[in-house]
């Protein structure tokens, strides 16, 4: 464990909790893409199948349970509890255009052709594009609530920190995993546009609004 991975995990945790609190406190999931949240729940489900068979550390297990629990709770709140506030008209990104190619790629490019490994690879590839429906929804609505931008910033920052973690681990441990690194680069690059808007607007007290 190094400081970049730890802060990355904490940033990820902050993002997930922030979103949960936003929906719970405002009792509304306006501006939130349910499709992205479903894909994140799928990412955690396919990645943490070894939760009970492969114990690594209390930290690792606790974080996995929290991620799984929060992501399912978020999906539940969007599609059931606060369904009335779900903005389906703007959450129109075709998720199947992501899930199917990602599923195919996981079959073709992986470290080992076993079910658990393919599912893990699927979760890595899916996570790298899972935010697209959310970013697409913001371009459709032309704006985002400030709390939602903080959620997105923390979420984007987490994988950027993981990239540094992988540089660290390559340098000090000689470890590197090309699948995770390439997917992590794609994932972080997708946030660049948002990072620019977040830093130039939100951090200057402005509301994040796109030229409609």
């Amino acid at each position: 464990m190094n400081v970049f991975r730890l802060t990355g995990d904490l940033s990820h945790l902050v993002a997930i909790i922030l979103l949960l609190l936003k929906i719970w406190k405002t009792r509304s999931c306006a501006g939130i893409s349910g499709k992205s949240q479903v894909m994140f729940a799928l990412v955690f489900t396919t990645r943490y199948l070894d939760l009970f068979t492969n114990f690594i550390s209390p930290y690792n297990s606790v974080m996995k349970v929290i991620y799984l629990g929060c992501s399912y709770a978020t999906v539940y709140m969007i599609y059931m509890k606060f369904k009335a506030s779900y903005d389906g008209n703007h959450d129109t990104f075709r998720a199947e255009f992501l899930i199917i190619p990602v599923g195919g790629l996981a079959f073709l490019v992986n470290h080992e052709f076993t079910p658990l490994e393919i599912l893990w690879t699927f979760s890595i590839y899916l996570e790298s594009v899972a935010i697209l429906p959310q970013l697409f929804m913001i371009t459709k609505t032309g704006e985002a609530e400030t709390i939602t931008t903080h959620y997105l910033f923390a979420l984007g920052l987490y994988r950027a920190l993981y990239l540094i973690n992988w540089i660290w681990r390559y340098y000090f441990e000689g470890f590197f995993d090309l699948i995770a690194i390439v997917a992590g680069c794609v994932q972080t690059i997708l946030y660049c546009d948002f990072f620019y808007l977040y830093i130039t607007k939100v951090l200057h007290g402005k509301k994040l609004s796109l030229p409609a």
Partner: peptide, 10 residues
């Protein structure tokens, strides 16, 4: 097997 990918990451 730890393999190329470390299972210890989230």
């Amino acid at each position: 097997k730890n393999g190329p990918k470390a299972k210890d990451e989230l």
